[in-house]
Amino acid sequence: MRTFSYVRADDVDAALRAITDEPNAKFLGGGTNLVDLMREDIERPDTVVDITRLPLAEVEELPDGGVRIGALLRNSHLAAHPVIRSRYPMVAQAVLSGASGQLRNMATVGGNLMQRTRCLYFYDDAAACNKREPGSGCAAIGGFSRSHAVLGASASCAATHPSDLCVALAALDAIVELRSSRGTRRVPLVDFHRMPGDTPEIETVLADDELITAVELPPPPSGVSRYRKVRDRASYAFALVSVAAALDVQDGVVSSIRLALGGVGTKPWRAYQAERALLGAPATEESFRAAARAELADAVSLPHNEFKIRLAESTIVAVLRGMS
């Protein structure tokens, strides 16, 4: 871990000033990812700006029927919030499926968006990693690749995005609000995270001087919604595959569908191709399987993660079948 300064911001403007004024500064929320990465000497900020006391932890119902979630709301509060539980159950389910109670009490919504991969080679400072050290190579691609992505990978990087919440947010067309001293902008969540391409070290569109202030959800899609996670033990583990789905069926036909995948993509994966195949199709297992296959058609496997392709298809089918 490097030596660094710790400063605390009491309001948003102070936070935005600190991030620009302090050299190589990073925002500190719950610390559940950043502190660990700093201890691993992967993140090396010279200054850490603690933003946990900023008044950005509210859930506000919006006039259009949507909801605005403050970026510093703790995961556990998000999952327990009555509006979220009743109107966006897949968000609550996604959050509760992740980490542990203690970690959910600490982790913030903004931090969840910013969390970095759990790739074993990213964490191994003796291994080549283009994300950690651009241009150094990727040891995962020729190595032990069981947890790596089958969608969105490049020759430089196949690291999986580990979030559960982001998968649900992707399915729900969430918007991320970013503020800097230059002003405020809004980015769809599906565009917030980047695929690795040639620059795996650039993971989001967040500028160096920007702070995530809120995540907004449009009114919820109709029908039943669910988040399901498949992993190596019953709890407290990252996804092998996860599925966020919202499905509405009218007269045996899919009238509304949202689908997003976790554990299989280099970013939270909105399954547009599956959605296109399903909308208007009969709500049968055949349709579900065809749609899943369509989404995974471009999946590229590495020696140890091939099973994820079939597992993703099976999970999609199982989730949709269980909802219809």
């Binding site: 988040y227 399901r228 996670k229 498949v230």
Partner: peptide, 11 residues
């Protein structure tokens, strides 16, 4: 699959 809202019995 434990607490992450898994199967309802099919399969």
């Amino acid at each position: 699959g434990g607490a992450s809202n898994t199967t309802h019995g099919e399969g």
